[in-house]
Design a protein around this nucleic acid. Sequence first.
DNA 1: TCGAGGGTTTTTTTT
DNA 2: AAACCCTCGA
Length: 665
Amino acid sequence: MAKKYTLKKFNETGLIETKVDETRFSIDYRNILNSSQFEAVSAVKGNYLLIAGAGTGKTRTLVYRVARLIELGYPPESILLLTFTRKASKEMLNRAAMLLDSRCTKINGGTFHSFANLTLRKYGKLAGIDPSFTILDQSDSEDAINLIRGQINIDAIKKRFPKKSTIFKIISLSKNTDTRIEDIVEVSFPHFLEFADKIVDIAKVYEAYKRKNSMLDYDDLLIYLLRFLQNENQGAKALLSKIRFVMVDEYQDTNYLQAEIVKSLTKYNANCMVVGDDSQSIYSFRGANFKNIIEFPNYFPNTTIIKLEENYRSTQTILDMANFIINSAVEKYPKNLFTRKTSDNLPAIISATNENMQSRFVVNRILELREEGVKLEDIAVLFRSSFHSFDLEIELNKANIPYIKVGGMKFMESAHVKDLLAFMRVTANPRDLISWYRILMLHEGIGPKKAQAILGYIESNAFSFDKHTELPVPAKMYDKIINLFEIIKTAKNKSKSPAEKAEYLYNYYDPLFKSAYDDFNKRKKDIETFINISQNYKSIDSFLADMALEPPQDSVSDLEPGNNEDEFLTLTTIHSAKGLEWHTVFLIHAMEGFFPSSQASESTEALEEERRLMYVTVTRAEEHLYVCYPMHIFDRYSGFTIAKPSRFIQGIGEDIAEEWLLDEE
DNA sequence: TCGAGGGTTTTTTTT
DNA sequence: AAACCCTCGA
């Protein structure tokens, strides 16, 4: 039966008037919020740029605005709240629901990518893509590129060709900053300039491969969404007419594509509020451009700029340190953070003799704080790169302090989980060559060349699961491969749930798994978790989409079940700490080469981003801040060398931070 | 010619 | 821990 479309009028009148009687609300907005917050919260129509410094109640403001719009009678579905991370979106919806009622959870909310996913699944046909598309996460994309690289470079290139991750980065940056690959290479990877043509070729094959197999990588999700919105077809109009309010959190970390999406989303309704802080822009490696926030008023007519400057999170002494760090920034936009929270505690800068002493200091201090009544969940240890916490993790285990690690090696990225996932994927899409490749390589006797040959066979039109006439493998491997095909064919059976499929495939994978990994016992837990997670899904497609878009964060092995306290210390990369706050914050490895990272030292821009990262770190703390660094560090080349404290804390006055010297008892 | 196996290097940050 | 590089054996 034909589907019925009702086109609604745009710019419809009959919106509720903005003059409102405050007593009609169940929430006392005017008194709960400060005047800037109230201005933002009570805004209904028009475009707004909210410049919100760290800890100024940005989330709170958005949450209250959602509640208020709903109280004003706007349907929840007319509100679109785009956030940067999954976590942030969940938190906001929950807070709004607590504030008002469950209507708030019905608003459209999520990350740009999850919104793109939902939209494209719904309107895929109109967007020119099969709605049952597969999503490639970064490692999938890299694997695809690796495969293509292998095909293209048959003529042996003598020199070092860029790694798959580098090629991926270049292609991705090119897409999400709308820049030619050649230009990206020239500016950011000049040492690979001679390979620019080859990279362009690889990109073309990569795009064609995805196109052919209905696969979208993270950038494609945004690209297709944008195209769909810009193409004014019925679906786009239907969607756009429904959305009357667009709110975007962390706008300083949007890239070109995301900014364009916001522009398209608001084309008819012109009610857009973006929130951000240019001093907290820390995602330029992903194409984020903090100029988006600066240029917002140029693209959105009659933008009202509201600044939130009162900080409710940190003490003045912590803010002083934050200001010290950001004041030396080359480029910044004037902001004047202040607070009424005073404190006698100065942030501390701790120099330890070596890394282990740093770890023991953190552990010691945490134990003391716990004695003083600070809960573990109110404490966090932050670091620049995820491997910086290895030594500390050992000490924490010794001291029996339970912790959760955020960022870094993730569950879904571990090789064994990816293996099993590859099996699942092939059942969902038998043309998924990347997954086939991964599966084939697990088998003894099959390396890159044979795997490629079999891929060619699978890709050919003659391929079916039943007839095998020209399978290009030696006779002794023939049965093995046929058996594999049989297994996949059986698993494909539609009546099997994702969990049943996973179980069935794991049976086959088990011997391969055990021979591939010596430490299979440790890894086994992850497999079990994977199967458990799959039990929550009815369809394999939604299972696979979720695994790519919102993968479960932690490997279970991090969560020791032996501890019955459900209180955990948080270990996190600074990037993952974004938007969060703790009573006490430790920063470890605040030293040159680690933070700023040695890769950043070549460009001023990168160093400036590291500085903002330090600013983000400091502003996570409410009461206590400990910045630690070891004085001696093991260096691969020169053994133990003297470490230099991070440039961002050098020259800091005694009025801002106090120095601690550690002494062994 | 291909694949296995061992040794070496190299780690940013995430949707 | 995983990617990369090299060598050796079939």
